[in-house]
Design a binder for these strands. Structure first.
Lengths: 175, 175
DNA sequence: ATCATTTGTAATTGATCGATCACTAATCTA
DNA sequence: TAGATTAGTGATCGATCAATTACAAATGAT
């Protein structure tokens, strides 16, 4: 039997590098050489782990959605009803601060037409929506579907505000 | 004095073609040859009107934002107060149906880091926000800043719903 | 009708990039 | 320590693309 060693998490390192490079430069303009450089390996070595650049994008998006689900699930399992929505917003804010690149990548991927990528994005949004809506229903919140829509909508505007560095887009206190 | 002729709107034709091709394929992956083909001209001829591909993108975005402003202004100048928000939503829905590609291009451009493009996007969002908020204030609507945020947020989610073909994302009627 | 301007294209170029191939260095097994 | 497997790289290649150049055809003015 064979034993692997070296960097046991090479694959994860490459994915992390890809998330950053894709987010900064744009998936199509970003090169596999940039990703490799960021991961501290040579460009051809990337292809030992991912057959194509698109495979790498798909995995980067999966990682990003998994983190999103986990963040929301953590809140849903622990938060008390009256603070549920507030804490979900808090969790997303923290996600955006700690994993900005993953959110920027999700934003990009919304307009990528490749069926495989579009499928991942659709599933990501569907699952997020289900997670939040079920939690609102279980918490006995009124108009759960409406509240879920508003929650997701604020999230999308929050993304725009972050990506374009336009914090005023999220101001809502009237004097 | 020289007189021009041929197609007096060649430039507009190229921009229209660019909006579609960029929206379908993604700006970075789209080629100037595709844009030229869509416009019915040769690839080098594009560069008689736009010095660089980025110039073409900038103009495409300007056209798209101008149309957005015009759509909202039309409603604001004519709508009666109680129906203002409803009609603004209607105007945006129509814009998305009639000029889907322009909206998809705006979505894409949210994550393009080139300073010139980011500047156009920032200005577009700032102006849209000002337009809507001032209209809400003039209409005497309560919490105008909050209502403006919710309006813009719904617009962003609506974009996602359209781009990913996920109509359920905009459902909000509870049974 | 000729000359100048404008409209447009074919051909090309220099750069870039994803992916492959051929190879070496390190590590493991027996 | 020999042999085999694994980890990793340099070199390269075919394709692609934005942009330039050098032209040709049409149009307009005199």
């Amino acid at each position: 039997m064979a034993r692997k060693a070296a960097s046991p998490n090479r694959k994860e390192e490459i994915v992390s590098a890809a998330v950053e490079v894709f987010a900064e430069t744009g998936y199509y303009r970003a090169t596999t050489a940039q990703v490799a450089g960021r991961a501290g390996i040579s460009q051809p070595y990337v292809f030992r782990f991912f057959a194509t650049k698109e495979d790498l994008l798909a995995e980067a998006l999966n990682v990003s959605w998994t983190r999103t689900f986990d963040a929301f699930r953590g809140v849903i399992e622990s938060a008390e009803t009256p603070k549920l929505e507030e804490e979900l917003i808090g969790a997303y804010t923290e996600l955006m601060e700690r994993h900005r690149s993953e959110i920027l990548l999700q934003m990009q991927a919304q307009t990528i037409a490749e069926p495989r990528i579009a499928g991942i994005m659709r599933e990501g949004f569907r699952e997020t929506r289900k997670l939040v809506q079920d939690a609102f229903v279980r918490a006995g919140i009124d108009n759960p579907k409406h509240r879920t829509l508003i929650f997701l909508a604020r999230g999308m505007l929050c993304n725009t505000s972050m990506a374009l560095d336009l914090p005023e887009l999220m101001e809502e206190e009237d004097v």
